[in-house]
Design a protein around this nucleic acid. Structure first.
Lengths: 198, 198
DNA sequence: GTCTATAGCACGATAGAC
DNA sequence: GTCTATCGTGCTATAGAC
């Protein structure tokens, strides 16, 4: 890997750290350069301007963290599918890098239209679609009660987002996250109890 | 009301508008003064500094929007209690001023420790406590299945927050909110179906 | 690809006249 | 209580030497 790419990556990593902590406006080119160990002007050899760095970061936020194959097949098992989903979700929520990107997301959600649209489309719709497919299968199999699969997917997903936010907020102040460590599994249990048949 | 208080209020209103739109760092004293129709220096006759304005706004975010009296009595009716709760919640979510304050909250959640703590304690805990009380009564009355009332309250509340965020994001880009207008009521229906007995 | 130097502007805040 | 004027700082970005 050439030296250029190394510095470019260092810049974006430093920017993620700073934007997660202080927001886009607080993450000045000066501070980013200082964190990387170069001068401000050198930044512009790698990115056209400050906004280009943000764009590159936004791209990373919505990189699919995990693929789920054979949804229809796995969904037939019912609750184990949800457990598997939650394991993947937790992996993302507790991942250090992904957590930083989550903070960037929240920080800039109301400032950046492209971010908003990606959030509503990628972040939200993609999971909703996948889950509603699974719930549809479960309904057909008679595992869960009949309802609108899309809405059921929303109901399953929405608390996860909230718990993830709580986790992030708790972590930033270095408070104990033990109360939150099992909350994702409890959610699956509660939800399954809510929709299962028999 | 003296003229002083009038200007002071204008300042904080302008600040809310600007912070909701551009964040705390984007809402410069210059811009606030311009919106009020005075010079920057005049701001400092009403607030010690910029941060003092923010503090005053943060106080407003957590002013209790609605009291709920006779929780225990109302909870005995079961679903109608949840409906009443959701009506109050919707009133807040769709209120213009409260929606601006919600944006301020999200914008500065990771930047301001006092805001974070108030969010976790006031915003979250207060509703949780109230709801878990109600669910406890409903369990005693045999209206809903037995479970941890606190967790059930979380499960009821978490989607509301997510839907409120979705609503705010949709409104900011002036997209249609019709799909979201009934989502709160649907949530109550879904939830009640999930926990009711018989 | 990094440096020094600098342009040009916006920021928060203060001093002092009225 | 508001004004004009100003200070010192930090900001994004560019020019040009090495």
């Amino acid at each position: 890997m050439p030296k250029q790419e190394n510095t470019k990556q260092k810049i974006v990593e430093a920017a993620i750290d700073l934007i997660a902590e202080q927001g886009y406006k607080g993450a000045s080119v000066r501070k980013i350069a200082r964190a990387v160990g170069i001068r401000e002007s050198a930044i512009y050899n790698h990115y056209e301007n400050k906004e280009a760095i943000l764009k590159s970061i936004i791209g990373q936020i919505f990189e699919t963290p995990f693929e789920m194959k054979e949804i229809e097949e796995k969904a037939k098992r019912g609750k184990p599918f949800l457990r598997e989903f939650i394991v993947a979700y937790k992996l993302v929520a507790f991942d250090k890098k992904k957590e930083k990107l989550f903070r960037v997301l929240i920080n800039e959600l109301f400032q950046n239209r492209a971010l908003r649209e990606s959030f509503l489309q990628e972040f939200h719709q993609k999971d909703i679609k996948r889950l509603s497919q699974a719930f549809f299968v479960m309904m057909q199999e008679g595992l869960i009660r009949s309802d609108d699969p899309m809405f059921m997917a929303q109901e399953f997903l929405a608390p996860l987002f909230y718990f993830r936010l709580q986790l992030s907020l708790t972590k930033i102040d270095k408070q104990s996250t033990t109360a939150l460590s099992t909350i994702f599994e409890r959610h699956v249990d509660f939800f399954w109890e809510s929709v299962k048949i028999g």
